[in-house]
């Protein structure tokens, strides 16, 4: 999640470690939980704090009502309120920030559990596309000509994912 230039050389040991970490089970769990703590402190808390502040500002300015009103019909196709468009746009820029906005909207009562559930595949399928352009497509050396295609595919995937979640919800 850092924006620093990552070290991309893969050593065999690192790959093995990522796919099957070694050590005793308790140590491995603690190492993972520590990763989770670092994500929580370095990523989750700052992102959600920012999202809460932005959501509060949007609320004070009345932007939320405006977007909720005008994007309502479009988002209704996915079973979501209009404000969910803000979540999706944010997710595209940064997955963590998008999740933060969703959490903030949830607390404000704009999104309900059913909406969060529908959004879940989209957080991943169209998440952080902007930064992954460099980190993934650039690094993997995919010809720039095909980047728009891959981006459209991701967004289509996200839309299909949300529709599938609506279908799945019929059974719960």
């Amino acid at each position: 999640m850092t924006t620093n230039e990552p070290d991309l050389t893969i050593k065999k040991e690192e790959l093995k470690e990522a796919l099957a970490p070694s050590g005793n089970v308790f140590d491995i769990f603690v190492r993972g939980a520590r990763k989770g703590w670092n994500i929580g402190v370095n990523n989750l808390i700052p992102n959600i704090l920012m999202a809460y502040v932005i959501a509060y500002i949007l609320n004070i300015l009345g932007v939320m009502d405006f977007i909720g009103h005008w994007c309502g019909p479009l988002m209704a196709l996915l079973g979501l309120p209009g404000e969910a468009l803000i979540v999706l746009l944010t997710v595209w820029l940064s997955c963590s920030a998008g999740v933060g906005v969703a959490a903030a909207f949830f607390t404000q009562g704009v999104l309900e559990p059913v909406h969060i559930t529908i959004l879940m595949p989209a957080f991943i399928l169209m998440g952080s596309q902007l930064q992954y352009m460099g980190r993934l497509l650039g690094t993997a050396d995919v010809p720039k000509k095909y980047w728009p295609l891959l981006m459209v595919i991701s967004i289509v995937n996200a839309v299909i994912g949300m529709i599938l979640m609506r279908v799945v919800l019929l059974f719960f």
Partner: peptide, 19 residues
């Protein structure tokens, strides 16, 4: 509000990544 809420989410992330 956001800070305390985010803090309440940390345990589930720690458990998930550990698992």
């Amino acid at each position: 509000g956001g800070f305390l809420f985010a803090l309440s989410l940390v345990p589930s992330v720690m458990l998930a990544v550990g698992a």
